[in-house]
Deep mutational scan, measured.
Amino acid sequence: MTVLPKDIPGDSLKVTVGTANGKPGDTVTVPVTFADVAKMKNVGTCNFYLGYDASLLEVVSVDAGPIVKNAAVNFSSSASNGTISFLFLDNTITDELITADGVFANIKFKLKSVTAKTTTPVTFKDGGAFGDGTMSKIASVTKTNGSVTIDP
């Protein structure tokens, strides 16, 4: 049996954390987006972790974005102690894959008090994996961190 590389060099799934701005007490939304989904033969499963400074940001909610089908079954998240974990699994293993680019999740943060303008990162942590529509590992994932700026 011969195994051929399935990824064209330079191609990767792009996962990007967005940015937001606000004043202390505001609730802002930071999107997590996927790009080049079709090039990577869709997404059938993924789990990953984001870190944030809990002294500056309070997670209000984490909701599935419009590219997630049947989110009540296929999407899960949790947030505590400065870490947000995400889990997606197409429970049907074929019919509810992520097949389009767009917003995977929206994180709502309540901004805490600061004395001066502060930009705090929302960054990928170690761990996690992504699988394509056949549940094979997506070897190349380009992750881009985001941030939230609090301006009193």
Results as ranks from 00 to 15, higher is better:
Met1Val: 13
Val3Met: 06
Leu4Pro: 12
Leu4Ile: 08
Leu4Tyr: 14
Leu4Met: 11
Lys6Gln: 11
Lys6Ile: 14
Lys6Phe: 13
Lys6Val: 12
Lys6His: 12
Asp7Thr: 12
Asp7Trp: 12
Ile8Pro: 08
Ile8Ala: 08
Pro9Ser: 09
Gly10Pro: 13
Asp11Cys: 09
Asp11Ile: 12
Asp11Leu: 09
Ser12Glu: 13
Leu13Cys: 10
Lys14Ile: 08
Lys14Leu: 09
Val15Met: 07
Thr16Arg: 12
Val17Gly: 12
Val17Lys: 01
Val17Gln: 11
Gly18Cys: 14
Gly18Asp: 13
Gly18Asn: 10
Thr19Met: 09
Thr19Ile: 09
Ala20Thr: 11
Asn21Val: 13
Gly22Val: 13
Pro24Gly: 09
Pro24Glu: 13
Gly25Val: 13
Gly25Trp: 09
Asp26Trp: 09
Asp26His: 12
Thr29Met: 14
Thr29Glu: 12
Thr29Lys: 09
Val30Gly: 08
Pro31Cys: 11
Pro31Gln: 11
Pro31Leu: 11
Val32Phe: 08
Thr33Cys: 09
Thr33Leu: 12
Thr33Glu: 10
Phe34Thr: 08
Phe34Arg: 00
Ala35Gln: 14
Ala35Tyr: 07
Asp36Glu: 12
Asp36Asn: 14
Asp36Trp: 14
Val37Leu: 05
Val37Met: 06
Val37Arg: 07
Ala38Lys: 11
Ala38Asp: 08
Lys39Pro: 10
Lys39Glu: 14
Met40Arg: 10
Met40Thr: 12
Met40Val: 08
Lys41Trp: 07
Lys41Pro: 10
Asn42Met: 09
Val43Ile: 09
Val43His: 05
Val43Tyr: 01
Val43Gly: 10
Gly44Arg: 01
Gly44Glu: 04
Gly44Asn: 00
Cys46Glu: 01
Asn47Lys: 03
Asn47Cys: 03
Phe48Gly: 12
Phe48Pro: 01
Tyr49Met: 01
Leu50Cys: 09
Tyr52Thr: 13
Tyr52Phe: 14
Tyr52Leu: 11
Asp53Gln: 13
Asp53Pro: 13
Ala54Pro: 10
Ser55Ala: 08
Ser55Met: 08
Leu56Pro: 07
Leu56Trp: 08
Leu56Met: 10
Leu56Ile: 09
Leu57Glu: 10
Leu57Met: 12
Glu58Arg: 11
Glu58Thr: 09
Val59Met: 11
Val59Leu: 12
Ser61Ala: 12
Ser61Asn: 09
Val62Asn: 08
Asp63Ile: 13
Asp63Glu: 09
Asp63Gly: 09
Asp63Asn: 14
Asp63Tyr: 07
Ala64Ile: 08
Ala64Ser: 11
Gly65Met: 12
Gly65Lys: 08
Pro66Tyr: 14
Pro66Leu: 12
Pro66Ile: 11
Ile67Leu: 12
Val68Met: 10
Val68His: 10
Val68Cys: 10
Lys69Thr: 10
Lys69Ile: 13
Lys69Asp: 13
Lys69Ala: 11
Asn70Met: 07
Ala71Gln: 09
Ala71Pro: 13
Ala71Arg: 10
Ala72Asp: 14
Ala72Met: 14
Val73Arg: 03
Val73Asn: 06
Asn74Phe: 00
Asn74Tyr: 03
Phe75Arg: 02
Phe75Cys: 05
Ser77Cys: 15
Ser77Asn: 15
Ser78Cys: 15
Ala79Asp: 15
Ala79Pro: 05
Ala79Gly: 09
Ala79Glu: 15
Ala79Asn: 15
Ala79Arg: 15
Ser80Pro: 05
Ser80Val: 14
Ser80Trp: 15
Ser80Tyr: 06
Asn81Trp: 15
Asn81Asp: 14
Gly82Thr: 15
Gly82Leu: 15
Gly82Gln: 15
Thr83Lys: 15
Thr83Arg: 15
Ile84Arg: 06
Ile84Tyr: 02
Ile84Pro: 00
Ile84Asn: 02
Phe86Cys: 03
Phe86Arg: 00
Leu87Thr: 00
Leu89Asp: 00
Leu89Trp: 03
Asp90Asn: 03
Asp90His: 02
Asn91Lys: 06
Asn91Glu: 15
Thr92Ser: 01
Thr92Gly: 03
Ile93Asn: 04
Ile93Cys: 02
Ile93Asp: 00
Thr94Gly: 03
Thr94Ile: 13
Thr94Lys: 05
Glu96Met: 00
Glu96Val: 04
Glu96Asn: 00
Leu97Ile: 06
Leu97Tyr: 00
Ile98Glu: 00
Ile98Lys: 05
Ile98Thr: 15
Ile98Cys: 08
Thr99Asp: 04
Thr99Phe: 08
Thr99Asn: 06
Thr99Arg: 06
Ala100Leu: 05
Ala100Phe: 04
Ala100Ile: 06
Asp101Gly: 07
Asp101Ile: 03
Asp101Phe: 04
Gly102Phe: 04
Val103Leu: 03
Phe104Ile: 03
Phe104Ala: 04
Ala105Gln: 00
Ala105Phe: 14
Ala105Ile: 03
Ala105Cys: 13
Asn106Glu: 03
Asn106Ser: 04
Ile107Asp: 02
Phe109Met: 05
Phe109Gly: 00
Phe109Asp: 00
Lys110Met: 08
Lys110Arg: 06
Leu111Arg: 03
Lys112Pro: 03
Lys112Val: 04
Lys112Asn: 03
Lys112Arg: 05
Ser113Met: 05
Ser113Gly: 08
Ser113Lys: 06
Ser113Cys: 05
Val114Ser: 07
Thr115Cys: 03
Ala116Trp: 03
Ala116Asp: 06
Thr118Phe: 02
Thr118Asn: 06
Thr119Val: 02
Thr120His: 06
Thr120Pro: 06
Pro121His: 08
Pro121Gly: 07
Pro121Leu: 07
Val122Arg: 00
Val122Gly: 05
Val122Asp: 01
Thr123Lys: 14
Thr123Gly: 07
Phe124Tyr: 02
Phe124Cys: 03
Asp126Lys: 15
Gly127Leu: 02
Gly127Arg: 15
Gly128Arg: 03
Gly128Tyr: 02
Ala129Leu: 01
Ala129Ile: 01
Ala129Val: 04
Phe130Leu: 05
Phe130Ile: 04
Phe130Asn: 00
Phe130Thr: 01
Phe130Ser: 02
Gly131His: 01
Gly133Val: 03
Gly133Thr: 02
Gly133Phe: 06
Thr134Glu: 06
Met135Thr: 02
Met135Asn: 01
Met135Gln: 03
Ser136Ile: 04
Ser136Leu: 04
Lys137Ser: 00
Lys137Gln: 01
Lys137Arg: 04
Ile138Gln: 03
Ile138Val: 08
Ala139Asn: 04
Ala139Arg: 15
Ser140Phe: 05
Ser140Ala: 07
Val141Cys: 00
Val141Phe: 02
Val141Pro: 02
Val141Leu: 06
Thr142Arg: 08
Thr142Leu: 08
Thr142Met: 09
Lys143Trp: 04
Thr144Glu: 06
Thr144Cys: 05
Asn145His: 03
Asn145Phe: 07
Gly146Val: 05
Val148His: 00
Val148Asp: 01
Val148Asn: 06
Val148Gln: 04
Thr149Val: 15
Thr149Asn: 14
Thr149Ala: 14
Ile150His: 15
Ile150Gln: 15
Ile150Met: 13
Ile150Gly: 15
Ile150Ala: 14
Asp151Ile: 15
Asp151Thr: 15
Asp151Ala: 15
Asp151His: 15
Asp151Met: 15
Pro152Ile: 11
